[in-house]
Design a protein around this nucleic acid. Structure first.
Lengths: 328, 328
DNA sequence: CTGTTAGCGCATTCAT
DNA sequence: ATGAATGCGCTAACAG
């Protein structure tokens, strides 16, 4: 910076003003000389130093539970795009669903003076999160934590489950099985599970049970298929991971996809059309969710101190073969 | 920090030593007092300031062409794990295959004083990359850029293609079609394409052509299927994206998967077993590739100035239904 | 072993 | 409209 100042025959202060938002205060002559000096020397301001001085690092942090989950990726893509459009950079931390890593990453993010945080993890370490929230705005994605009073962005789970069940019932399915990943406290899983019970309870024609993925999935699924009861049967997979696991098991059981059994999944993955007659899905507007999460943060950064917002997005039903031909 | 120093009745320097690697120089008594003061005040050192002073930010940058490509995610997961194990944090920048965004992100990464860079992009902006390479170590993943003299980590493409063609030939396929994404200069695509031509040329029994994904894919693929010629026919998809596109088209053409035609894909995705009779694949050791990329960087950061290394990993053949029952 | 001093690169008073 | 001076939080050289 000193080099630039000397090269332009001005003071560091003027260069600083040129770099920052005070460019209007400079005379055209000086601004021009600085601009030339900058490009002549290939000068790039050091963001670390700027951040240190102003307290604004232009950095947003995002805590992700499972980076290999396509949902997380899609949301993160939305967040990153929005960040860039507003001059922010995104620091992504993946916890691999590990509590210790979550703690470690939270500490790191704070050490790097991020200006805001987007959280999509288990949200254990409540104290740490609360501390962080004193220092910076925070928004929860797909996770509700009542005690945190943070902005919430996610799917309208009851509505999504409603359309799923409604669709299954209309298509003639009568015996439903909810397949989810283990309930580890993730609010969206609980919500979907509760909504499922609820929907089934209010429809006399339907029967509904639920199951968790895991080692015993194959056995339990077989039991479900073999058991007598109302028919036809259908699976409702609560997310992409569950859908993958369930479909895998169906194949292992030599169950023709999807003649003996229906299937609908929450989350729409790019390969769903390719499996069997195609997997019916409820697509989440992941890009919009990501964008909204960043927008929330931005509003807070700009001084909005209103009450915590809750943004619920709607899922879109994509009908494919897996719910189209219920056996009689 | 000053607070901690006062609370412990010592100087900032001692606190600094405690924080950093000079802890051994402190007397037990003082170390203890500092430790207590730190936890009493909940003090966390500011990484920005440390980085500013020492020139070591403990930050690694990674430039990714397409964050929605599972290959990139898998490699990135490997890199991130390795980073964390060595106390580094990873800043990921996604360019969405856009040259301008690549330039922008490169500038940003420099501004944030990252210590090393992992590149998995088109690698246009050669000048910028070369400049950066003066300032920090750099490793290319799945991309060769001769003029850059950087460490290279990736797949042994000729060997991988060799096993693919070998497998197809052994299974009885005779007419092969390579499906890749458009050749945008990506070295791995070129390598795979060249290796394909090469392998086919040295096998008199085989015929080989190639095709790029895009709007005309469906028409071209139909032409291939309908055309007379040696038989049976098989597709070789050069990566996961191509495999998705090709399989989608096969379904649209009502081609039973995979009775009329064989298919093998480079990259193994989690849903391959579920499509038709299963998609045969060559799995890349993505986690290992990511780890190796970081290790290269680490060696350079520790002073290794030897010649550029080239690390080629081997793919592993996963045989599934798509190459198992060639029609007669 | 420990404290003092002097910056890292920049933004911001305060003068002018 | 511009420059000089001060300090952000920390580390490194030097003394002691």
């Amino acid at each position: 910076m000193l080099d630039v100042a000397r090269h332009a025959g001005v003071s560091k202060a003027s260069v600083s003003r040129f770099i920052g938002e005070d460019r209007a205060l400079l005379s055209d002559a000086i601004a021009l000389r600085i601009e030339q000096a900058i490009s002549a020397l290939g000068y790039r301001p050091n963001q670390m130093a700027r951040g240190l001085k102003r307290g604004r690092t232009r950095l947003i942090g995002m805590l992700v539970a499972d980076i290999r989950n396509p949902y997380s990726i899609a949301v993160m893509h939305g967040v990153e795009t929005a960040c860039r459009q507003h001059g922010y950079s995104l620091v992504v931390c993946n916890t691999d669903r590990d509590d210790q890593q979550e703690a470690q990453h939270l500490a790191n993010l704070r050490a790097y003076n991020i200006e805001g945080l987007i959280v999509n993890t288990l949200g254990h370490h409540l104290e740490q999160l609360q501390e962080l929230q004193q220092e910076m705005p925070m928004v929860l994605v797909d996770r509700k934590l009542e005690s945190l009073h943070a902005d919430l962005v996610g799917l309208d789970n009851p509505a999504a489950v409603h359309s799923a069940i409604e669709h299954l019932e209309q298509q003639g399915y009568r015996d439903l099985l909810l397949v989810s990943e283990p309930h580890d406290g993730t609010s969206s899983r609980l919500e979907r599970s509760a909504a499922f019970q609820d929907e089934v309870a209010r429809r006399p024609a339907l029967r509904g049970q639920s199951l968790e993925t895991g080692a015993a999935l194959a056995r339990h699924l077989k039991d479900f298929l073999d058991a007598p009861g109302p028919s036809p049967k259908a699976l409702f997979c609560a997310n992409g991971v569950a859908a993958l696991a369930a479909t895998r098991v169906l194949r292992e059981l030599d169950c023709p996809l999807f003649e003996g059994i229906g299937l609908i999944a929450l989350d729409d993955l790019d390969w769903y059309p390719l499996v069997g007659s195609g997997i019916t899905a409820l697509a989440q507007p992941t890009e919009a969710i990501g964008t909204a999460a960043f927008q929330c943060l931005l509003k807070r950064l700009r001084g909005d101190t209103g009450p915590a917002r809750v943004l619920d997005f709607a899922a879109q039903l994509m009908v494919r073969g897996s719910t189209r031909k219920p056996p009689v």
